[in-house]
Computed example of a mutant assay.
Amino acid sequence: MTDSAPPFRRRPAGFLVLATAFFAVMALAVFATGFLDSWGMPLMAGLVALGLIALLLLIGATAFTVLGFRAAYRRKAAPILLRLALALAPPLLFAGLALAARPLLDAGDRLGVAARLAQDEARFAIIIARVKEEQPAASDGTRRTEDGISFLVDRGPPLRVAFHPRGILDSWTGIVFDPTRALANYVSQGARRPGARSAITPDDLSGLFGGDLVGCRHLRDDFFLCRFS
């Protein structure tokens, strides 16, 4: 290796640190995409972000793999473990990130939903109190926005409110206020035909918010993250 070569190519440890840092940044970018998606990032923006991450990851993984193999080949006198580390670290890091991509997206989404609930819970309470005092209206089944919070109302009884609905067409996700906590007992049966009722879905949950309940996750207290179709 000539002295004119970049420092990270002259020093194996520097190369390994740089490769690890690159994949760590890519992992953070995937996590951040999931986090931002939970805050209502437009679908197209999310797809573009994931596409750019995938492209950069592919380019970076290819470059580091080629450099690693070249470094391992040129250091024939180096210990075998060092040569193996130089050659195998980039592809192994790439494979690990590929396997962890979905969990990272989900983790970012979970943190984002929790952060959004913590930020908006006081405004949720104000909207819920206001809705309880209102008379049933034709707007209950349509999306409304108050105090910067979008929501849907299902009068039931009992009254339930879905905050920050987001999704595509009839498939959407929202933070649902359920004072009965009946949603905690809901177990998804997987994909169902539109309009079909699961044998274990309670009667007061069928047709909730005018759709089919696909699944729920308890957030805290009377709030759940639910998916509808």
Rank of each mutant, 00 (worst) to 15 (best):
R123T: 14
L93H: 12
L97D: 10
A118H: 01
L111V: 13
F94L: 09
L159V: 09
A129L: 10
V153S: 07
V153K: 01
D120A: 15
P165C: 10
K132C: 07
G148N: 02
F163A: 03
G141L: 10
F151N: 01
Q135D: 12
R123P: 03
A100L: 09
A115D: 10
L99K: 09
E121C: 13
A98S: 10
A138P: 03
G148S: 07
L159S: 04
P158H: 02
Q119E: 14
P90A: 02
L93P: 05
L111P: 01
P157S: 08
L152H: 06
R144T: 00
R143I: 15
A114F: 00
G112M: 06
Q119R: 14
G96S: 07
F163I: 08
G148L: 09
A114I: 06
R166Y: 14
I126V: 15
A100H: 04
A137E: 13
A125I: 11
D154Y: 07
P90M: 02
H164P: 00
P165M: 11
S139M: 07
R155C: 03
L117Y: 01
R130G: 13
K132D: 08
G108E: 05
A107Y: 01
S139C: 04
Q135W: 07
E133A: 15
L93R: 02
D154L: 06
A98I: 02
A138G: 11
P136L: 09
E146D: 08
R166F: 14
P136E: 05
I149F: 10
T145M: 14
L105T: 06
A114G: 07
A122Q: 02
R143V: 15
D140N: 04
F94Q: 13
D106S: 14
P91E: 02
P103D: 11
T145S: 13
G112W: 00
R166E: 15
A129I: 08
F163N: 00
R130A: 15
E121I: 14
I149D: 05
K132F: 10
R160S: 04
R160E: 01
S150Y: 11
D140P: 04
T145Y: 03
F163L: 13
P158K: 03
P90R: 00
L93F: 14
A95M: 05
E146A: 14
F94W: 15
L117N: 01
P157Y: 03
A138Y: 11
R102Q: 13
A115G: 05
P90Q: 02
F94P: 06
L105N: 03
A114W: 01
R130N: 10
T145V: 12
D147W: 03
A100P: 01
D120W: 07
I126E: 12
P91L: 00
F94E: 12
R155E: 02
I128Y: 04
A107F: 03
A118C: 04
E146R: 01
T142M: 08
R123K: 12
R123M: 13
P91M: 00
L159N: 04
D109N: 15
L152T: 05
D106H: 12
R123S: 15
V153G: 02
R123N: 13
R116M: 13
L117D: 00
V131T: 05
D154V: 06
V131Q: 00
G112K: 01
P165D: 14
L159M: 12
A107L: 14
A125N: 03
D109L: 11
S150H: 03
V153F: 08
A118V: 08
R166A: 15
G112C: 11
R155A: 07
L159A: 07
P103S: 04
V113I: 15
P103Y: 12
R143D: 05
